[in-house]
Design a binder for these strands. Sequence first.
RNA 1: GGCCGGGUGGCAGAGUGGUCAUGCAGCGGACUGCAAAUCCGCGUACAUCGGUUCGAUUCCGGUCCCGGCCUCCA
Length: 464
Amino acid sequence: MTLHLYNTLTRSKEPFEPLEVGHVRMYVCGPTVYDRAHIGNARPAVVFDVLARLLRHLYGRLTYVRNITDVDDKINARSVESGEPIGELTARTTRFYHEDMAALGVLPPDVEPRATEHIGDMIALIERLVVGGHAYAAEGHVLFSVPSMDDYGQLSGRSRDEMIAGARVEVAPYKRDPADFVLWKPSPPELPGWDSPWGRGRPGWHLECSAMSERYLGQSFDIHGGGQDLIFPHHENEIAQSRCAHPGSGFARYWVHNGHLMVEGEKMSKSLGNFFTVHDLLDQAPGEALRLYLLTAHYHQPFDWRAEGLAQARATLDRFYRALERVAEVPLPEAPVVPEGVLAALADDLNTPLAISRMHDLAGALNRAGTVEEQGRLKAELLAAGELMGLLGEAPEAWFRRGLKAGAPDAAHIEAEIARRAEARKGRDFATADAIRDALKAQGIELLDSAEGTTWRVVEPDAG
RNA sequence: GGCCGGGUGGCAGAGUGGUCAUGCAGCGGACUGCAAAUCCGCGUACAUCGGUUCGAUUCCGGUCCCGGCCUCCA
């Protein structure tokens, strides 16, 4: 099965071929750690987590690098504002990020480099650029000379002239060309800074990804990912830095960008009050539901985050887990199974909505299955599909009984009531049976009868 | 202004040059003491106007809307 990916560089869907047989290398732009991750930060993390799982499945070995940006003017500003020292702010925010991503079922990347630990690599990169005539020092700054690169602008598809025509280009007096961008800038004593040949200073934003991707993945690697808003200027400038520092190197070959996220049809922003952090949303729904919801639209499309959509994602997981719960005792086949339909959907440029619909097909077939062998096979396929997507990792019972609140009846009490009700039903005393069921329902416990007996689950009043 | 990406049934959301998306919601039925779940069946959907074609939601062009980016926002 051949993976196809939409490559921003060529604006077309291409068959994927790793540079090295059996080993894929991927770099994804990670968070700037100055605040809790919002749901828009979660989308690329989840999308590229699915891609990472797929790459490991298809090619065996993956080196996945996702950085932590811990030197940045937004961090400095937040620290000044709150009084919290920068080191504590970035360490705390990084910890929160890890917790939130884990709740979303996002596996850790293989390498998670911090910018502040690679300043030496960045300085070395700047020196190469200066020697090669692609960068120059001016007033304590070092700038990348955009006119020094013949084919600048390939990724974003814009010419230098077009950029200069843009009204928002601020031309600092020390720039030789309006399009030039900062590689290194001076730091006053109160801000983080490192000694360099150009004085005490700190790196420009684009530099860290060039330096760290080279350190861990080499001068040429397979996939570079991030949000669509990073295409310009961030990724364009990364390409400029890396390829001019190492003439002849290819840098990243496939550029994969996820679409942006809106909330209830509006652009997400703090002023509109529709700014959701992952942490807040985890109070409203299980992380797995947030994750599934993010995967219900193709990664390339804009995503409109809506409360109703989240409830639907949760209902979808209820359906999958119900199908699995019904065959909880059915053994899995010995040989590993591959869910071909789901795999094919994901291999086609990560078509997660189609993959989910094929998981629905599997769940429906599992509900209809007549023999234990068939049930075992379909159960295994659904679970394997879930693993590729980072879903269905819980025991069905745990899924349905999550959120059992303090003060609610405990499991032993519920089981005793179920037994009492079974006696009543046996004696066809349905009034008593229904009274027991209603009483538990009022306490947030729902009883479900089936041919095999009665099970229970926690009712989520906020599920609608 | 420039560069991108879109407009699919009540909702979400894939896909395709010519009988099927899928899920939720709705309607009917089976099953059930009743619920719930599950199963079966049911919908003249593809912004608009032209063009190409035996045939277009799908290809081409115009129009109208919507969204993103255009120097540090995933």
